[in-house]
Structures are given as structure tokens and as C-alpha cells.
């Protein structure tokens, strides 16, 4: 049996070229890097400063007057206000990006099975439509102890704990690219999930690595957190 590689699957991460030489596993029809070629790939690296590509992990979005009711009917916790995120029991993130727009980001632990379950449900009859954020956006996870200091180099918004606590969302510009930043925890490690336009993913990947350099930041694979 040959090893999984991004080229062997039709669904690819937007930064798969940056992950050449890594080992991969098949997640929802795409190749997720489990360990990178020249890196520590361990939890201590994730706790210090690390960048992880989650782009192939399933995610979906809904917008419209009945979008909140649609997610509620599926048993998902709805954040009370826009720009807040909540976590489900199985680890999915529910993002509320405006009064009427929601994204659901799959959990690493179950390879995004919760998102697939939601996608199996029919849409409400009116005022709710799907957003294809799986294809439009890359999902980069920045982890470690230096998150606000790292992003302060490329972003104008104050992302320190006092003004950007766990469960906060900021929709802003990072290195001049429009992004959604979500503050949450990934396997107990502080994490900023950064969702950017897929076409800007390679640029943002390099920009973030450059900003992480002074904190000893490195690329990791998902095994570092499992």
C-alpha cells in the first residue's frame, strides 16, 4: 500500500506545496499532514509556537434569517452575539460571524464527522443558504504561548487575553489579507484559528512563519496534538 500524499487525492489543502516531505493521512478525502519532514512534531513545540494546516478538515457555513434555527435544530450551541464562538461536546467550533451568518468548523478528534452530519440535514424551506467555506477559505491554526505577540507584528487589532478572551472572533486584516481569527483551544493548547481566502493561503502561511520566527515557531503535523 502506498503512503497517502496530497497528489494522490483530488481534494488538496491550499498550502500542500509548503508541506512537501511531510507524512499524511486521509481525512474526508484530503491529505492532512500528520508530521512534517524537518520539525519537532511534538506537543512541546505546539505549546511554544507552531503552525498547523487544517484546511482539509471539514467545515460548512449557513447564512439567512433561519440559519440559527437550522443549527439549533441540529443540537448545536448558538453563540449569543456576533463575533463569538462556542464549542460543541465533540469539539466542533460554531462561529457566529454576524447576526445571520454561522460557520461550523469540524473537530480534529473525529476528522470532522459532525460537519458531515449537519450537511446531511436538509436546509430550512426559506431564508437559509449554504456557504462553501470549505473551498473558499484556508484554515491555518497558530498555536502556543506567544499568540498575541506573534500576531501583533502583522495585525492592528489587540488580541491580548484581556480584550480577546477564549471564544472571541475578530474579522480583520492580517498581513493585509482579510481573515477570521478564532481564539480557542486545540487539545488543551492555546490556539488562534485563522481562516483566510484560499488564494492568499500560501502568502499568509509564509508571512505567519516569518512572524513566528523570533518565538521559535515551526510547522507541525496534527499528530503533535493527538
Amino acid at each position: 500500500m502506498s503512503a497517502t500524499s496530497p497528489e494522490s487525492l483530488s481534494k488538496r489543502s491550499f498550502v500542500y506545496r509548503q508541506l512537501a516531505g511531510a507524512s499524511f493521512r486521509d481525512i474526508a478525502g484530503g491529505a492532512m499532514a500528520t508530521g512534517v519532514a524537518e520539525g519537532n512534531n511534538n506537543r512541546s513545540q505546539a505549546e511554544q509556537s507552531a503552525l498547523l494546516d487544517l484546511s482539509v478538515l471539514p467545515r460548512t457555513g449557513f447564512r439567512g434569517l433561519t440559519a440559527a434555527a437550522h443549527l439549533q435544530a441540529a443540537g448545536l450551541p448558538i453563540p449569543a452575539r456576533p463575533n463569538q464562538a462556542s464549542v460543541t461536546g465533540s469539539g466542533e467550533l460554531v462561529l457566529r460571524l454576524s447576526q445571520k451568518e454561522f460557520w461550523l468548523l469540524g473537530a480534529l478528534s473525529d476528522s470532522g464527522a459532525g460537519v458531515d452530519a449537519l450537511n446531511q440535514r436538509g436546509l430550512p424551506a426559506a431564508d437559509c443558504y449554504s456557504l462553501y467555506c470549505q473551498d473558499s477559505h484556508a484554515w491555518l491554526a497558530l498555536t502556543g504561548a506567544h499568540l498575541p505577540a506573534t500576531l501583533a507584528k502583522v495585525c492592528g487589532v489587540d488580541l491580548r487575553e484581556a480584550s480577546f478572551p477564549l471564544g472571541s472572533i475578530a474579522q480583520t486584516s492580517v498581513a493585509r489579507v482579510n481573515v477570521v481569527i478564532v481564539h480557542h483551544q486545540l487539545a488543551g493548547v492555546p490556539c488562534f484559528s485563522i481562516l483566510c481566502d484560499s488564494a492568499a493561503a500560501e502568502y499568509l502561511w509564509e508571512s505567519l512563519l516569518d512572524a513566528m520566527g523570533e518565538f521559535g515557531g515551526e510547522v507541525i503535523g496534527s499528530n503533535a496534538l493527538l
Binding site: 454576524s98 492592528g156 487589532v157 474579522q171 480583520t172 486584516s173
Partner: peptide, 10 residues
């Protein structure tokens, strides 16, 4: 009104 104070370049 949705996101709070932001740089005008956004």
C-alpha cells in the same frame, strides 16, 4: 457597528 474599531484600510 459589527466588529468595533478597525483601521480605515479595512
Amino acid at each position: 457597528p459589527l466588529n468595533g474599531p478597525r483601521n480605515i484600510s479595512e
